[in-house]
Design a protein around this nucleic acid. Structure first.
Lengths: 100, 100
DNA sequence: TTTTTACATGAACATATGTTCATAACTTTG
DNA sequence: CAAAGTTATGAACATATGTTCATGTAAAAA
């Protein structure tokens, strides 16, 4: 039998889930899971969003440790850093729910 | 190579993540993952919470399809319904993050 | 060195979420 | 049937979150 999760672990788990729990951010992570790295503009265009909004979400994901970024000329490329996150998405790929 | 997630899937994935993404709810799910079923009071005491607050979170998790419930005498027992959810928690068990 | 391209940032706002408190509903027991 | 035990519910409130808009900053190109 495994041990019960202590408070700190529960907090950390909830923290990561909260960071990812948004359609745009799930979409971004899915993209970066198939592409190694992408520029802000690539992501923006690919998901059909607004530049500023994309930046906000990317900054969020980076700040919380899910993504990393690296400048290359005019572009800034984002990439996955927290390897657990795409695994989570994978598990939920075929989940059956009734969204309201 | 796997296919890109369509909008509907992304929405559903985010929906489930959002439902779980709270320390109390992660704690509840962890409890129900080791106990099959528990009464509201058991959960309340075990996690050291308030009755009303526990009820609200349980109702939330049930409404979204993560938990189920069944009355037995004075008690109402809750149990896990969405099997993917504990798997997600398992993946994040040892995740390393700096919560702010 | 001005212009253009690419991205970041902050304020303002609307909406969603979490918690508390008071009370209601249901079940068993006396 | 009244009382006690168990859970649900709704209003009110505080806080967090997501989005837009305007503007700032950095690199490359003209």
């Amino acid at each position: 039998m495994e041990e019960q999760l202590d408070n700190e672990r529960v907090e950390k788990i909830a923290f990561v889930l909260k960071t990812v729990a948004h359609p745009m951010r799930v979409g971004i992570i899915d993209l970066l899971n198939r592409n190694e790295k992408m520029s802000v503009n690539d992501i923006t265009v690919y998901l059909g969003l607004e530049q500023s909004l994309t930046s906000h979400h990317l900054a969020n994901l980076k700040m919380k440790g899910v993504l990393g970024s690296k400048r290359s000329g005019k572009n800034i490329f984002y990439f996955l850093k927290m390897k657990e996150v795409p695994q989570i998405i994978k598990i939920l790929e075929d989940v059956k729910v009734n969204v309201f």
